[in-house]
Design a protein around this nucleic acid. Sequence first.
DNA 1: TGTTAGCACTCATCCGGTCGGAGTGCTAAT
DNA 2: ATTAGCACTCCGACCGGATGAGTGCTAACA
Lengths: 343, 343
Amino acid sequence: MQLDERKVKILQAIIRNYLETGEPVGSRTISKYTDLNLSSATIRNEMADLEEMGYILQPHTSAGRIPSDKGYRLYVDAIMEEKNKEVEDLKELLLEKEDKMDHLLKQVAKVLAVNTNYATMISTPNYRRNKLKFIQLTRVDHDNLLAVIVVEGNVIKNNILQVASNLDDETLLKLNILLNTHLNGLSIEEINLGMIAVIKQQAGSYSTIVGEVIEAVGEAIKADEDLEIYTSGTNNIFKYPELADHQKASELINAFEEKRMLTELVRDNLADDGNTGIQVYIGDETPIQSMKDCSIVTATYELDEGMRGTIGIIGPKRMDYDKVVNTLRTLQGQLEELYKKKQ
Amino acid sequence: MQLDERKVKILQAIIRNYLETGEPVGSRTISKYTDLNLSSATIRNEMADLEEMGYILQPHTSAGRIPSDKGYRLYVDAIMEEKNKEVEDLKELLLEKEDKMDHLLKQVAKVLAVNTNYATMISTPNYRRNKLKFIQLTRVDHDNLLAVIVVEGNVIKNNILQVASNLDDETLLKLNILLNTHLNGLSIEEINLGMIAVIKQQAGSYSTIVGEVIEAVGEAIKADEDLEIYTSGTNNIFKYPELADHQKASELINAFEEKRMLTELVRDNLADDGNTGIQVYIGDETPIQSMKDCSIVTATYELDEGMRGTIGIIGPKRMDYDKVVNTLRTLQGQLEELYKKKQ
DNA sequence: TGTTAGCACTCATCCGGTCGGAGTGCTAAT
DNA sequence: ATTAGCACTCCGACCGGATGAGTGCTAACA
């Protein structure tokens, strides 16, 4: 069977209508809804075809039709029109002075949730492949040393190390110089075991301390574990009856709280190096089992070379894809712009 | 009317039973449940009295009785027996190497949630009245300065400051000495405007930088805004039908996500200086509007002089008060112990 | 040949009535 | 003071009919 233009129009009408109401939509509704001027009977015939082709389905006989995952997919890929809605208020909200990254991100998640009425998440940008800028060891008190590690992008890590107390200021200075001359400007791939051995050897009796510092450096640069995720608007799921029953709601909320799953989603997203775009997962396509009745739209934002994070919107399958995709696209741009301004 | 021993026993039986089942409990049940050997008729009479006195109530005529808030209150205050249950597994779980405070706290919240089947929250300890340990200014690159601020308890703050580039190493050293000699060991109350003026004057042309650093110090010590709250087990509320309807669940989840309310709860708790104990809020007693169908049990933990945080458990009014109170009490001790070991 | 009106059919939902069970309050007997 | 017994209340489950939305099919029409 052919998916001719009329079928597409009817499918589009069904989806649009279903997005609004959440109720199965019948032939009569479509007959009036579209500008095709077809009777409900004709629509019925077409709908039977569309169902056979797998784009729509009936919850039960004598109910209207609802879009299938395949239907949504077609809608997102081919039909959806790019609206250029005004999302300028987002910008204003974002520009409230937010100098700290985590506050900003929390704010973004929240604004996005309020704006879209879906649940949202945002990950901190990950700093994979970042380089060490410098290291500083300082004595804090008798047997504690503070290691401050600054990586590119001015991300700072602190680490308290316990040491034997026989460490005078001069030695400390030497260690500082030793570490900095060897390690500054290097990325995690460039710090190998051989180099570490050399440094340790030069550190002589302080090799243990140096070892600990280098380990901390490794953790600071790799920073993968630091992938923090903020969520907002979780309770929006209650606005969609199809997600709100106890079983599903509980699982969803758990997924949002645990964040483990979300982390994986983000990882997948970021692992795909070329991907700087917007990704739509519909129903079963989602990598998160407990969200298989949802759709997830993710956007990757890139603040700087290799410094990327993910924004995600999780809602019912009858999500307003147009709006969501456009909002995310705008937001992407704004985040990047904002970052440049801050620099 | 008198609340004699028998009435208390019956009330206790009603509550115990209701805690288990969540269903209104009838006279016949109690008649068999207790070791009083009374017929259901007698129990009925007593129950009528208890109802008149306000300790129990009927959801509707010809239903069994459920405890009123007043009933729970009596139970918690007077009746509840202190069980010394084993909560040792908590300890084991906590001792998994968790060197970072925030990870530890998240872990605690989670363990507690899994253990009790209620929603839990924990606040970071607040450092009000903490003293500055030392300050360190370091050049990061041409026009960025890193200020590392360490306060007692080894809490570390970093701050990047933009500066004009004409700042040589010697000046930096002088500024470091200047700041440290004046400010080390001081609490926020002790740093006043007069002192700041003196330091700024001595800093000469670098007074702007010094000003910014001091401001950062202020924020680091005050740290009030840093009251972070971690929650866990939110989806446990779905285990209790009386909390699980859409309306309530949505409000509750919102409260957990927003955390604003929880913050206030914590503040109230911590503001009460003498309070190092366990607090039980039943139903309407709670300061959080959206939790008026819940009970909240909070415990204050004190890691160090003036370094206190709050743990909270939020569940249905038919909460297992015995278990919760005991678990919290044990946890309190363990957290404090753990902290001492780390020191 | 594509479109449409009409009709019989299906199915979810709503509504009112019935019924059983759980639990009560009251009374009279112990 | 306690208890057995009984009438009463009320909730919840179950049932059957009515309703209405929506379908598939067929026959007529342009």
